[in-house]
């Protein structure tokens, strides 16, 4: 009899702790937004987040109104997410080609008409890039994002040719990726 009661009590405790854990679990999306906000950039607006796998994520964000655009690479930790590397540039509309911790990333705004994005690497490999969308809450003054993004942890993305297509398969734009990532890093004023 006593044994039964003990088993019952242990069972109840386990069930309650599982319920509590589920209730108080903040989702990954939320944790990543908090992490980017902690960079203390004024008026940060976190855009779409791409979960590469269980342990890695890439996030696009704007800050200073729409003056600057950034890409952050995040690693999963025991309790949340940590930014391993990030970069921010002036929002010019040009393709952003950056090398972060594990990943090389190319991304920029996708025109509303763009439905398909194809990436041809310098070694001839052809792949398609994803279009990431995040609807912003206009009441909160958030911006809606529609960006195409392509990344790799093995391939060299230098000199890749990106072609965007509309719904009829017509070419919208052909974009040449620069030959060096993080172009700005070595840049100085003339």
């Amino acid at each position: 009899m006593r044994k039964k009661i003990a088993v019952l009590i242990v069972g109840i405790i386990i069930v309650i702790s599982i319920i509590l854990a589920v209730l108080f679990k903040r989702d990954d999306q939320q944790k990543i937004v908090e992490e980017i906000n902690a960079m203390n950039l004024p008026l940060t607006d976190v855009g779409p987040i791409e979960f590469v796998d269980n342990d890695h994520a890439l996030a696009i964000f704007l800050w200073s109104g729409i003056g600057h655009i950034g890409v952050a690479e995040l690693d999963k930790t025991l309790f949340g997410w940590d930014i391993s590397r990030a970069t921010s540039e002036f929002l010019s509309g040009d393709v952003q080609f950056v090398e972060l911790n594990h990943f090389s990333v190319i991304q920029t705004w996708a025109d509303p008409s763009v439905q398909d994005v194809s990436v041809e690497l310098e070694n001839g490999v052809i792949d398609s890039a994803q279009i990431l969308i995040k609807e912003g809450d206009t009441k909160k003054g958030e911006i809606s994002f529609r960006n195409w993004l392509y990344y790799s942890d093995t391939e060299d993305l230098s000199n890749a040719i990106v072609t965007t297509y509309d719904k009829d398969g017509e070419v919208v734009e052909v974009i040449e990726v620069p030959d060096q990532p993080n172009e700005g890093l070595d840049r100085t004023v003339e």
Partner: peptide, 22 residues
């Protein structure tokens, strides 16, 4: 532009001019 190498102790960043700086 800012490149963040390290966001924790110690913070390590590199700043560079953009097309707008000039």
């Amino acid at each position: 532009g800012i490149y963040y190498y390290e966001l924790d102790n110690p913070i390590q960043v590199e700043m560079f001019p953009t097309s707008r700086t000039q």
